[in-house]
């Protein structure tokens, strides 16, 4: 099937099998390997990307479902060499270790802050409930998002 979509501001048109997941499409067809796969059942959130402004688990979406959509992946978060405030905060506050869940965390954090620019610690934790991190114990991820919120609001 032919699909056309915009990823990180660039338009792509490809002929793909309907059973191809959006994650596979990003990773295999577009070589955007920053979006990761950690599970089979939409439990881990490592595959989170933004579709039409909303965080979605791209492993539980067929690429054909995203036809016509506008996507942002982790590769599209920075503005050239200038990292997004969320990315900066993760670096500054050690919000990542092995880095595998990180793209999903950043993309989910963007949705949390979009819906709620001043989240409490509890709201951040609740907002991250769809994303597993096995390294950080979430402590510094929560801290990073708190600081990113401050940075964005100032």
């Amino acid at each position: 099937m032919q699909i056309t979509l915009t990823v990180n501001g660039k338009q792509y048109s490809n002929d793909i099998e309907p059973r191809m997941s959006l994650t596979q499409y990003l990773r295999e067809v577009l070589d955007l390997t920053g979006t990761h796969v950690g599970c089979d059942t939409s439990g881990c959130g490592a595959c989170t990307v933004s579709l039409n402004g909303a965080a979605v688990k791209s492993c539980t979406l067929l690429a054909v479902q995203a036809d016509g959509g506008e996507l942002t992946t982790i590769e599209g978060m920075a503005n050239g060499n200038e990292m997004h405030p969320i990315q900066k905060a993760f670096k500054e506050h050690h919000g990542l270790q092995c880095g595998f869940c990180t793209p999903g965390m950043v993309m989910t954090a963007a949705n949390i802050l979009k819906d709620n620019p001043n989240p409490s610690e509890e709201e951040i934790r609740h907002g991250l409930e769809g994303n597993f991190c096995r390294c950080t114990g979430y402590h510094n991820i929560v801290k990073s998002i708190q600081h990113a919120a401050e940075e964005i609001n100032n």
Partner: peptide, 12 residues
């Protein structure tokens, strides 16, 4: 190492 991971540029 963070910059590459945060930009989705790690090589797993």
């Amino acid at each position: 190492e963070d910059a590459r991971f945060l930009k989705g540029a790690g090589t797993y």
